[in-house]
């Protein structure tokens, strides 16, 4: 514990308050105008561009079908808001099931991928042995095969395992595109952690595994959370495997279920589609905001937990 704090700075006692408000230290000498130009204006611009499509989707989801096609007055506002589409989505489709399936698959496959890639990332970034380079390279190279065709041979494997129409088909295949990604991501983070920290622990009699579990992994928490975020999001949005491997409406995931049941031939039901898009993303975004906060504070937390 003492050792870990000392890694942040030679003087843990002094470090405490500074870590807590590091960037505020900078802000002391700033005037509001400086901060506005440096932070608020670019931030607002980014927010506007990022959020406009969401505003549009939200507005669309409250419009009746005929108002949707009416551009004679401002399309940016809704005159007669209706909850019809949300109601329809939640009661007449299997959306709640899809949401549950999507969350289940995303969480389990993310956990599996993280378990594998934390170990693999540590091994490839930290340990020296014959073939590490080529294995790291090999893990990555498989990534270069585009999924637009990879799904065909993969269906053989799924068939042989009798996993068609089963959420396990997704839980087991999603790691194939999550692991290479997370492993490499974490390799980057493990490399960023000074080697001396672990060597010091080894000198103090810790085993290699202890050094990994107690020093390297806690220090890489921001990286692990970032990897988790990506993995979760990629699974949450995955479309192709979910389309191919699942058949029954009750086992489908959001992206596939929504498009299959809300797009009828050449007529789109925009209100419902957009309602589904929002319901499928905003709760996750809220969840994320807590996670991001946690890992932005990750270093401080990691140092304290030691």
């Amino acid at each position: 514990m003492a050792m870990q704090s000392s890694t942040r700075s030679g003087q843990p006692a002094v470090l405490g308050p500074r870590v807590r408000k590091p960037r505020n230290g900078r802000a002391i000498g700033d005037r509001f105008v400086g901060r506005a130009i440096r932070i608020y204006i670019p931030l607002l611009a980014l927010l506007a561009v990022t959020l406009f499509p969401f505003y549009w989707m939200a507005i669309t989801s409250f419009k009746s079908a005929s108002e949707l096609f009416d551009f004679s007055v401002s399309p940016l506002w809704v005159r007669e808001p209706t909850l019809f589409w949300y109601q329809d989505l939640l009661t007449k489709t299997n959306f709640p099931h899809w949401a549950f399936n999507t969350a289940l698959v995303a969480i389990v496959s993310t956990l599996i991928s993280l378990f594998c890639s934390v170990l693999a990332g540590y091994s490839l970034a930290r340990l020296r042995y014959r073939g590490a380079d080529s294995i790291g390279w090999g893990i990555f190279v498989t990534y270069l095969v585009p999924p637009t065709l990879l799904f065909l041979p993969l269906t053989f494997v799924i068939r042989e395992l009798h996993l068609f129409n089963n959420l396990w088909s997704l839980i087991l295949t999603y790691p194939t595109f999550l692991i290479p990604f997370c492993t490499w991501m974490l390799m980057g983070f493990f490399k960023g952690i000074p080697r001396e920290l672990e060597e010091a622990a080894l000198v103090d009699g810790a085993t290699r595994i202890q050094a990994m579990l107690r020093i390297a992994i806690p220090l890489a928490v921001p990286g692990i959370l970032a990897a988790a975020l990506f993995a979760f999001t990629l699974s949450w949005n995955e479309f192709l495997y979910s389309l191919i491997f699942l058949n029954d409406s009750l086992v489908k995931t959001i992206p596939v279920g929504v498009t299959q049941e809300l797009i009828h031939g050449d007529e789109f039901f925009w209100g419902e589609l957009m309602a589904a898009a929002l319901l499928g993303s905003v709760p996750v975004a809220v969840l994320y905001s807590f996670f991001v906060d946690y890992f932005v504070a990750g270093m401080t937390a990691g140092a304290v937990k030691g």
């Binding site: 799904f151 065909l152 269906t155 053989f156 068939r159 192709l240 389309l243 191919i244």
Partner: peptide, 11 residues
């Protein structure tokens, strides 16, 4: 793509 996958996997 669903049909293609079924044909390739013969299932």
């Amino acid at each position: 793509p669903k049909t293609a996958a079924a044909v390739e996997a013969s299932s």
